[in-house]
Amino acid sequence: MIELSDVQKAFGPKEVLRGVNLTIPKAESMVVIGGSGTGKSVMLKCILGLIRPDRGTITLDGEDVTEAERDAFLARFGMLFQGAALFDSLHVWQNVAFRLLRGSLKRPKAEAREIAVEKLRRVGLKADVADLFPAELSGGMQKRVGLARAIAAEPEIIFFDEPTTGLDPIMAGVINELIREIVTEMGATAMTITHDMSSVRAIADKVAMIHDGKIRWTGPVSEMDSTEDPYVRQFVSGSAEGPIEAVR
């Protein structure tokens, strides 16, 4: 279980997170929705310790993440970055198998490659992609390689930052299914950021909506459509009319 309490983060004068309180239960799929630029990616990075919050605490299974032993802590996580963040000096398969080629999870090269190819297949990529460089792939393919890398070492907690952005509807469906599968079959805890409402419905157990640096609303996905909260209603319906300003 991951718990954020009163997490605040500002960049210079710009207050991005203004006291985020959120609980992500174990082995569940939490989806975070919210307008672009509202600090969703920053929130994920705070949990991973990539960005240090100005205030507030973040705990994983009751232990403060800033005090946890870094290597053991990070070994439990997989992360898909919004821009895929593939290493462009490495082949696709070496990107996917990055964790399996060094450090505590190191294994023989041939075996690591085999796992990489298998993970690539799971995200809908053929084996011949394995020997290309990331720069030779389209944006959507890069995203899926990033996804394969995030799940390669079978982590117990996985963060997906906009996994289906830039994918065609069919591929988006494949990825949604994959995320769902990882949670139900592997018992992983997932936190997904997305703007894609069909994704939300396919992936989420719980939904949290972030607005103006705070969690506006959180609840089971089944209640998302019936909530009275005007922010959620506007976001779900995609209307320009409502409390969320179109210019921000």
Partner: peptide, 16 residues
């Protein structure tokens, strides 16, 4: 460039 494209962050999350 690695920093700007979050590759440095990715390295950290991959325990490197």
């Amino acid at each position: 460039t690695m920093k700007v494209t979050e590759q440095i962050d990715a390295l950290v999350t991959l325990s490197t």
